[in-house]
């Protein structure tokens, strides 16, 4: 029982750590946006957003502990598909 309490405590601690990390990353992304980074700014803010959402998905949505492959690959598939949709549309829109 005390084992479970301990595990429970460490789980709660990890949730709070992730929450803190998300807030820190939010601060970082707001700060970088006010610097003049030029063209790479969009890449930086999107990279930070990707890290933040990965944290949410892995820890809050518990994908980290997910054993089933079909659930693990769902989000990567959806995002890859969207990336391909955007890429193919880009091949039209930006090449007229």
């Amino acid at each position: 029982m005390s084992d479970e309490t301990k595990r429970g405590e460490s789980t709660v601690k990890s949730y709070i750590a992730v929450w803190a990390a998300l807030l820190v990353l939010t601060a970082v992304t707001v700060t970088t946006a006010s610097l003049d980074l030029g063209k790479i700014a969009i890449i930086v803010v999107l990279a930070i957003a990707a890290v933040k959402s990965t944290l949410v998905v892995l820890y809050f949505m518990h994908l980290r502990h997910e054993k089933r492959i079909v659930i693990k690959i769902l989000i990567p598939i959806a995002i890859a598909l969207l990336a391909i949709f955007i890429g193919l549309t880009y091949s039209d829109i930006m090449n007229r």
Partner: peptide, 11 residues
Amino acid sequence: SGQSDLAGIIF
């Protein structure tokens, strides 16, 4: 439709 030649070839 007027889409780009590149897109036409890929599709």
